[in-house]
Design a protein around this nucleic acid. Structure first.
Lengths: 202, 202
DNA sequence: CCTCGAGGATGACAGGTGTCACGGGCGGTT
DNA sequence: AACCGCCCGTGACACCTGTCATCCTCGAGG
């Protein structure tokens, strides 16, 4: 039986190489491509024709969610998202983008190969604890603009900087921030940005 | 020749297992223990008598810096710190705690085995780019209290919360924050806390 | 057509924040 | 003893923020 061909995308070279070593130990799996940036996934996909892509989410160039969308649009391979952070919003957005599976790096290494095989067989693989948490947190209550403003507020700059960056009036920024603070149940924009990010709302 | 015995400590099970697979491919290396928490390192050290410990820094229970100190105090094994974040302060503190080597997970996987061998041979292994950056950033200009206040400011709460947490007057907290903002060259406490953390000052 | 929600904006207000000047106490060094 | 740096605190001031009321526009849907 011909082995399942795998593409690995992770920005940490050492982790990427280690995962490749782990998966190559399985006789029915073969790592045929490794990339360290999201925007290199598509080219590697064309060049190596993998059956399954293992994508990290946090990557330079193009994040794993967008990379998933691109891979699915190309239509050839299935996607298994392998990520550090089990933020519920990530799970939802990854599945929306067309991922067949979602595992966090906290899960034991020996389960990864099975996850790959299940994904290749057309099954869905989802961390069960994360799935329930995702349902509890529900979907984001933030409007698009509120999310934009919170994203720009993540680095802690003053309102004027956020306003300039988004080409908005400072007053409007404060309105959006106030709404976001209310919806997140926090008291400062720094807290609001943190909890929104942890919930995957931005 | 008897293989070099290794202990792996990393909180992400999948990464830990993958690194084990990678290192076990080398005929002169053997992973004899794996733990997922810093406070399990010492017990594993006693039970498995490794020659080299590969420790992550971000771990629950006990961070890798403190774990390094504990391993060195026990006196038997050398330590190679393997971490995600190349913050200059981490490097300095790891070496101060007695680590023989320091590599970030961005470095290629095939260099890890060599780093382990060098550490086992009694040599120092330090990421050169990080070493220069560490020298440029120098040591922390923050006083103890300023560092405390910045630490408490990391989560974005109001001054009153920081003051209560540290049993200080709000005015004193604002004074320390003002000094820290000046020393970090930033304009808000959120920025100051971020840059201080990235420089390893807190 | 009319309503409704999202987006954008303004103005006003209370309260939080960053800065500064100043003072006091404590533990070092000279 | 005198000096110095760190720590802790107070008070004052300007500015920034968070909240609210209000207004306008626009597209979707009843």
């Amino acid at each position: 039986m011909t082995p399942i061909r795998l593409l690995l995308a992770d920005d940490q070279a050492m982790v990427r190489g280690a995962l490749a070593a782990l998966l190559d130990l399985e006789s029915d799996l073969e790592v045929v491509a490794q990339v360290g940036r999201g925007d290199e996934v598509l080219a590697a996909l064309e060049a190596s024709a993998p059956d399954v892509c293992l994508l990290d989410i946090e990557m330079p160039g193009l994040d794993g969610i967008e990379a998933t969308r691109a891979v699915r649009a190309a239509g050839r391979a299935r996607v298994l998202v392998v990520t550090t952070f089990g933020r519920p919003g990530y799970l939802r957005r990854a599945l929306d983008a067309g991922a067949s599976g979602f595992v966090v790096k906290d899960t034991p290494a020996h389960e990864l190969a099975d996850a790959v095989r299940r994904v290749h067989a057309g099954l869905r693989v989802v961390d069960p604890a994360l799935a329930t948490e995702s349902l509890l947190d529900g979907t984001s209550p933030l409007t698009d603009r509120e999310a934009d403003v919170l994203r720009a507020a993540l680095d802690g700059g003053p309102v004027a900087a956020i306003a300039a960056h988004l080409h908005l009036s400072p007053g409007t920024v404060r309105n959006h921030l106030s709404a976001a603070i209310g919806k997140t149940g926090t008291r400062t924009r720094a807290e609001a940005a943190r909890t929104a990010r942890d919930r995957g709302w931005i």
